[in-house]
Design a protein around this nucleic acid. Structure first.
Lengths: 402, 402
DNA sequence: CTAATTTGTAAACCGCCATGACGAAATAGT
DNA sequence: ACTATTTCGTCATGGCGGTTTACAAATTAG
């Protein structure tokens, strides 16, 4: 009777482990894992002082984690201070691994990440998925997953879960793709078409991208706005280190925030939505370019070459983004705004006008805008890491399977 | 060594009781209190089945809560089903009480609410506070507090905390008023000027209004947007049953969301902010009315009388609100939007255009908009109830003082 | 009037962390 | 070198909290 390994949509009243001694133990195991994971090799005593338990208690927790293969004893620490040196503990590089997968418009990618956060195996396949039926695409993805899992198993890892990033809206069951316009998929249950022997989670690629930024970013705060543009323009809202999903899971639709109340009509029914100014098509049109494959790369190239039409189009898009973000920043007071996904590559030409607009419209100190270091890698890494986080969050659950 | 009774700004990594047996006990005491409070008189067995503990465990918890006077044993339940009838438990009507206070622009109000949520004492004083110095105002408020506390004590209650709602921005220490434009207060530490023998919390009235809606509303969801207009136009964002405060505590500034990017200049530095269209002054000007006392009441009266200028102004304000809320709804996907505070009284004339705008701009089913039942009572009740909730959240802390 | 059902309590038990003491392994001082 | 000091990890003991099991009390069903 294993509890669900992890929940991609923890939006309900957050699931709280029952407050019994077993739950307490489980939470303390999790705290040990998180502490060791976050602060590198640590002795038992160091862990104890950080989480507020006694050394004796931590010892029993660590013993259990070592027995189940989630923690490794590295041996005595280099003695620098007085007193007996501790024995360094580190998160295990064997044992469970998170399998992340990404279904892009023109590629499939899979990777395996160990508990230490290292990518240990990966596989990519370039091919246009635009308009292809789900079955053949997922068949190919399954093959990639099997290849990556096999490679990971060769290194002593086993798959603790599979998380799939898709370019579209995902239902709250974390399995069904409600709508993926660029793939032309509707109400597709990925669970039926992917390996059944690995616990599955499906989520929007923008969400996974934001989580990657949260978990892997240099100095990413616990409250920020992650803006990306893959399908439409999405803003993932991260509050207190968690993703805000909204009642129906549709939170973050920055693309349809009104920018000019009487601007051009938008398929959504509104007028002057951000997407009409900063969406992919709108920018290409304003830049006088044709539609085609890898349109973002094209924009970046032309802008880098100095094409004034393209630069102007991006400047205007930045201004529109700035207006929409002003509203979002006023409403949420985040610590920062991060440009991710395709926007990261276009940042040099978007940022000046975006920041100018944001500064101009904000009274006090403006909200800092930064660019994601992860860029297009974000969603894939975020997916894999979401599985790893789930293991850290409840090591006892995974120990039952190991 | 009593922990702070309650935190109005729990924005940091939410304080978690240490995961030790004592913490477990405290949390279970809290769960019993919440369950009994929420679901009316309940037997020990009923409580046990709801929170997932055994009857024996609940018995000891209940015993402790009865001993400390937080729970009352009402006696045997009316036997309707087979089996021995349980003994009904109810939250105590004696013991700790929450003292709520409100500093309005033209009144002061204080009330005492018992753990059952009943208002047991209240005092109001009408007088213009606009521009008055903090000292005399708080002196008067202190007198009202003393009167209400005395009245409550006459009924066997004692003050567990004092929560003050102010029409302005409050620092994250929950004591200092950073800026209250209508009072003309700046960086005023209310803690130094209010009774020191009762734990104090200060917060924005819009926040308390939203919390009142959350706790007292008919069928208020756990995720909603509460819009009110007292100072400026504020939107409290409630997510998962908690208030979203933002990094600096400034979240919810709906008033400065851009509605017309090149509209009239706003003191905030921006252009075309919502406040320029739906703010108090803007609406009065559009309606062709003078500024004066009770301006909202005036608007409501004229509108009710059929004044077309006023109705038109309110219609336009509703449209502007609809545009701004479209952005907010897209970003947050709340379950509903609630109009509270002064807006509640003007709802009949605001709603049609507001909803029309929201519907028009939203693709799927539009987000339902409702009007607060509490109206101007919200902030005061929310303040008092915040103290009550704090007691329910950690009954062990209050037992130490009882 | 008996059987069945449900409630509340008491006693024994188990699990978890705290406490205090101890040996081990390093440094600091003489 | 040798001892005192400091810190680490572990062990035995104990307290505390919820569970298990059993049982008496109070009701309904037949």
């Amino acid at each position: 009777m294993t509890a669900p390994l992890h929940e991609a949509h923890p939006a309900g009243p957050r699931r709280v482990l029952p407050d019994t001694q077993q739950g307490m133990r489980r939470r303390n195991l999790a705290r040990v894992m998180h502490t060791v994971s976050a602060e590198g090799p640590l002795s038992r005593a160091a862990v104890a002082s950080r989480i507020g338990l006694t050394r004796a208690a931590v010892s029993t927790l660590v013993d259990e984690l070592i027995r189940t293969g989630l923690l490794d004893e590295l041996g005595p620490e280099r003695p620098g201070r007085v007193g007996r040196p501790g024995s360094a503990l580190a998160v295990s590089g064997h044992g469970p691994a998170g399998i992340g997968a990404e279904i892009g418009v023109d590629h499939l990618a899979v990777c395996a990440v160990d508990l230490r956060g290292q990518v240990r195996a990966r596989a990519v396949r370039h091919a246009t998925n635009r308009g292809r039926a789900p079955e053949p695409v997922l068949e190919e993805l399954t093959a990639l997953v099997h290849r990556v899992v096999a490679e990971a198993e060769g290194e002593g890892l086993w798959p603790a879960g599979l998380a799939v990033a898709v370019p579209g809206l995902v239902a709250r069951d974390a399995r069904t793709v409600v709508r993926a316009p660029n793939l032309d998929w509707h109400d597709t249950d990925l669970g039926a078409l992917l390996p059944a022997d690995i616990p599955l989670t499906v989520d929007n690629e923008a969400n996974f991208g934001a989580l990657a930024e949260l978990w892997l970013g240099e100095r990413t705060p616990e409250d920020f706005l992650h803006v990306s543009a893959e399908i439409g323009i999405g803003a993932a809202v991260v509050v207190a280190g968690g993703l805000l999903r909204g009642t129906r899971g549709f939170a973050g639709e920055l693309g349809h925030v009104p920018v000019q109340p009487e601007g051009p009509a938008c398929p959504c029914g509104g007028r002057g939505c951000l997407e009409q100014y900063a969406g992919e098509e709108a920018v290409l049109r304003a830049a006088g370019l044709e539609l085609g494959e890898d349109r973002v790369g094209l924009l970046a190239n032309r802008a880098a070459e100095g094409d004034e039409n393209v630069r102007g189009a991006l400047r205007d898009a930045g201004t529109a983004l700035g207006i929409a973000l002003t509203g979002a920043v006023n409403l949420l007071d985040p610590e920062s705004v991060v440009l991710g996904g395709a926007l990261a590559g276009l940042a040099p030409w978007l940022l000046p006008s975006l920041e100018a607009e944001l500064d101009r419209r904000t009274a006090g100190p403006a909200c800092p805008v930064s660019v994601s270091r992860l860029g297009p890698e974000g969603p894939l890494l975020g997916a894999a890491h979401s599985v790893v986080r789930a293991v850290l969050d409840d090591p006892a659950a995974v120990a039952e399977r190991g």
